[in-house]
Amino acid sequence: MYRIRFHGRGGQGMKTASRILGTAFFGSGFEVQDAPLYGAERRGAPIFAYVRAARRPIHERGVIDRPDLVVVADDTLVPIPTAGVMAGLGERSVLLVATGEEPAVWRDRLQLQGPILTLPIAAEERAELRFVGASCAAAAARLIGVISWADLERATQQELAPLGETVVVENLRRGRAAWDAFAPHEGLVVEGAEAASQVDERPDWIELPFEAARISAPDIHVAATSTEVRTGLWRTIRPVIDYDRCHRCTWVCSTLCPDSAIAVDTEGAPRIDLDHCKGCMICVAVCPTHAIETIPEGEAKHAESEEARP
């Protein structure tokens, strides 16, 4: 059975990617199961979708814990533990990262046993990864190597048809480019075992102790714990304040930021809390002096690391 996970952010088309691959597998005569996993979180938040494909009916269900292939549409997700990108990667698992960086950088960084490949993302595409879903699906299909371009093309058309002809054409163009780019690695992904688990594993069941209701009721006994959730990780673009142009006005940006992520310091200057800014850019839109700029998150991070060098 093939087991593939697609990781991205809400809005980047990971459900679409899983559906294109699922439909292409199905068109190639496989039994298929595909599903997105949404939580309560929203656009920009890490999400994933998965595909199972086999030559016989699939009984396995739920999240894939031993993937044969993991596709990451947004490289900023890799270091986020809660995104779960690295979960279950074994020595034969292939990791494919859509990134502007070289494969060697990632191999060096992650030190995985299995192969790491990269899907190059052009600079202008990085802020808005609108078409990355089809490219990810095409690259995955080529790496798996049991799906023809004709089946993939049909699947892409079928899944994207509701979005209109222009979207279909553009996605097919990019999908084809990814398909061609991974020709040298065709068949790199190897089908995993039929069963996901080994018989000799034992569950570490315990007897759950009784605990008084004041502990065991779903109550939070301390204020504002939500700040421990780093929603700044949702951000793909970053607002940057030019303090020369900022007039220290009546703090329009701070008032209108929905996430309470802009505070005003003792000098009267607004300070953006990048741990929690989701990158909605309302502050950019409302700043009376146009003092806030939009910078792609990747560039901003790169600049930060340059600055950090001695």
């Binding site: 502990i215 109550d219 939070i220 714990t225 421990e228």
Partner: peptide
């Protein structure tokens, strides 16, 4: 439960 400070509810009880 640590984040939710469940032990705070139990403290001194």
């Amino acid at each position: 439960q640590g984040i939710a400070a469940a032990e705070r509810a139990a403290a001194g009880q």
